[in-house]
Amino acid sequence: MYWKSLLVLALAVPGRAIVRFHCSQLVRERLDPLVEPGANPSAHVHQIVGGNSFNATMEPGKDMPGESTCTTCTFADDFSNYWTAVMYFRAKNGTYKRVPNIGNNQFEKANGGLTIYYMQDAIYDENQKSNVTAFKPGFRMFIGDVHARTLAEASRYRYLTYTCLDTWTQRSPETIAFPQRKCKEGIMTTLRFPTCWDGKNLDSPDHMSHMSYPETGTFESGGPCPATHPVRTAQVMFEVLWDTKQFNDLEWPEDGRNPFVWSFGDATGYANHADYVFGWKDNSLQKVLDSPCYFYTNCSEYGHKLQSVEDMNKCAQKPVLEEDIDGWLDALPGGYQSQYGPTSG
């Protein structure tokens, strides 16, 4: 019903764009140029999509479109990099196995990756009326807390959620912690970035302070930006589909706890987080946002360059470090073990 409703909305041309597209997997490796610039390897495994100029440092002055030769994203002018941590299954015997991420609805043929949204109003509003400012070259941001292990610690961040999928198209209810039951069709994580910019800084020491949530309400409810962060930007949102269903027939841990864990050890799910480094070519993102482009289906009609899933899948990088991240492992890459919060039982 969810996707049928969106298909109906797609037939109504919006005043301005609401964009939904996919980026296939570029690489999975231990690099994190935002939080641990220059570290090779970084502490834990990430999955990265976007332009193939991704590297360990990603200096703010880097010309990402100019240095990339391809992108894994539907929009051929989007050389940004988007990344999240990687999910693992913890077996009864204490070993770990990476959970594959798969192509989202309408992108089933994609080589894993993330589905990306750029929104100007609520996702269900086909008549996008607001004017928002596209990000500038050098812009970057981070959302979440890798150290969060309780609901109180996670509550600082709005809408970093999980959906236990009983059907392929289900999108609710959402939880802030890992689902505590077997999910028939897998687990979807949804990560929504702040939407108010201070108008000055392309980054900040914590990669978050230059951005803010609305002063009241939410982006979707039209809440106003605070005076300290007056510039309203697009809502950037990731959706990631994790193929946990293949582990449903295996023995889960004897203690009955959730068997899934992030690549940095969090077994509560409260430390869900994501990174974004802007890299759209020239002013192509602003042109997309200013056009009546719905999802990606009609965007080529307005001059926006799109590429096929097959071409997206061809763009890839080799990991800089040769290590096993996919086999049955005694410890997570980087030496992590499962970490539970003090209130998780």
Rank of each mutant, 00 (worst) to 15 (best):
E239T: 10
N131G: 12
S5H: 13
K92F: 06
G217I: 08
Q128H: 09
G345N: 11
D290Q: 05
K305N: 10
C315M: 06
D311Q: 15
A177P: 07
C293L: 03
F278R: 04
K4V: 15
V49G: 00
E59L: 12
L285S: 03
L9Q: 12
K318Q: 15
Q317L: 15
G341A: 05
M312C: 06
F107N: 12
G303P: 09
V45G: 00
P205W: 04
H22C: 06
P65Q: 04
A154F: 02
F75T: 05
T150L: 06
C225M: 02
H44T: 09
T115M: 13
D125V: 15
E185N: 10
G61E: 09
N201F: 01
Y213C: 09
Y270K: 02
P41R: 00
L9S: 11
N111L: 09
L9W: 09
L160K: 01
R90K: 15
T190M: 11
G327D: 06
L250M: 11
V45R: 01
S263W: 02
R140Y: 01
D78L: 02
H147M: 13
A316Q: 14
A274C: 03
G223L: 01
Q307N: 03
E36P: 04
S172D: 13
R140P: 06
P214Y: 02
V27Y: 02
D206P: 03
